[in-house]
Amino acid sequence: MVQRAHSHDDVYDRQIRLWGADAQKRMMSARVLYINLTGVTCEIMKNLVLAGIAAVVCDDRPYPEAVREMPCFFFHAEEMEKAMLPESNEGAEPDAKKAKRVPASVASVIQPKVDELNPLLSGRNSIEERALASLSDDYFSQFDAIVASRLTVPEAKRISSSLQKADVGKLFIVTDTFGFDGCAQLDFGNSHTYRRELGKDKFSDLLNIEPYISMVDMLDVPLAGVKSRWDKEVPRTLVLHRLLMDYWGYCKNGKNNQMRKFASFSDEWLSTNNLTTVGESFDLTHMTEIADHPEMSPVSAVLGGILGNEVIKSLTGKGEPANNIMLFNGLDGSCRSFLLNA
């Protein structure tokens, strides 16, 4: 067969047959910002880049240290471990030798790998190597969706309020996985509208997200009082996610990240948030390990697929968005959306 440049129509044929040419067109003009790569955000990025959606990666953390434990096919374990050499054993005598290496950001290392994944996006992907804190408020509103991991609550709130100011109606997801569990908090934007799918090529009128709760407001809801028709108390996975967001933020800001163990941090956090009864179901020994080594490949893959679909819904306006929490339980394979409301 003669080698020829493969066209969009050929490569995207099987998905255009699902969501239509107009949806594909919108996707191909969109750009999604990924803040802090993890297994789950890499999975979302893989799915969306393959589908023809350009990626901008914002991750100034050092490579490979920041991603050594991350189960992600972009970075090969063997390469990363080589990059860590010549230390004889992991963890030992690190500082002097690390300083010799030219520091590379995670974003700069992943850039060529993302480009290679879908050559049809050539020239449309980019990276952002500045620190998150140094980016101006209006930086965020230029993207069609933002997918973030390992954010602290203040970071998430800042991005959310800058998006609200611009009122662009764009999706903002904060997601992490931990052990068998995964959680995502989704803000589709106040002005976001969508059409429900009623059958093949049949759609509802334009609908608004109802009720709409911004990420800022979601993060301010006291979890202790949260209920729903199906949940007598706040879902355990959501509590864990928020606890870990605070714990990881604490570790990041603390000069010595092992100042306090997860167990004591968690006790205090649960009691401050009046969640001691929820916390009783946690296996803290197990959770301590998971808090420090949270990611597993298949959990990232499942949640990354689910959230990839949510981003596609937001870009195309087709399909009912998950409002506003997504909870994945890898033990039984269930995934459901949950409405977090004050």
Binding site: R14, A51, P298
Partner: peptide
């Protein structure tokens, strides 16, 4: 007789298969 196919659904079911393997 073309059946539409997308990356996300494949990623989801494959992830679930590996979780079942565990």
């Amino acid at each position: 007789n073309i059946i539409p196919a997308i990356a996300t659904t494949n990623a989801i079911v494959a992830g679930l298969q590996v979780l079942q393997m565990f």
